[in-house]
Amino acid sequence: MSKSEKKKKESILLRLGNSQVWKSIIRSGVPRDRRGRMLSVLNSVFLHLHPVRMPKHAVKLKYTWCMGGLSFYIFLVLTITGILLMFYYRPTIEYAYTDMIDLREQVPLGIMREIHRWGAHLMVITVWLHMFRVFMTGSYKSPREFNWVVGVMLLTLTLLLSFTGYLLPWDQLAIWAITVGTNMARATPFLGHEGPGAALLSIGDINLVHAGSDVRFALLGGRFVGEAALLRFYVLHCIGLPFIIVIFMAVHFWRIRKDGGISTPL
């Protein structure tokens, strides 16, 4: 390529970068210099989760392990594959299991369920490791205490999301894991009908807390793991818990910036 050709080509790119359309989308144009690079982070709604500049150790893998970012990314992957799976899956005892098999055998590119499932496992691991990293670097200490608390909530919600999703295939693995899991709720003090203290809550001879009125019932919508339980877990898994976790994530990310960005040695 001759020099003039190269120059011409560059100028096309440049013109593109200066065109009205491009500039209307990305205000600062193509980031070519220091100023442009700063603006590209500052002006983007997604990138401005990050500060414009950061201390050197903050971009080192050795320090961050990238686990927090990966957790968020896997959450996005799970959301997208989850939406795709919802097109085929029906949460009823009659169809749930056969839909699982159809997802594997009849739907083209039938690895969506695999990505969703393995992704869920991976997210649990990355969230744990993220917490481990934050602990080891002392990043939970003042002024970041509250963000650690929010992080623990996120960890709990991740596990709950994974747990509610476990029932949906309606196979042996699913119902027994959920039977065991929800029977713990039955033993909640005062709120479960086989928990300590439940027998004390009664008016005359009538027990207030019984199999039809305790926390387990609220979870399952019935006294057994059945049709109602499947529907409830489905709604919690697809809408209820994601709704809550997104709120907590927003707070988590916001607080990272507000609490002074990534932790640095003084």
Partner: peptide, 11 residues
């Protein structure tokens, strides 16, 4: 909360 406890169960 009450909404989560239906009156009729199909068992």
């Amino acid at each position: 909360l009450r909404f989560m406890f239906p009156n009729v169960l199909f068992e």
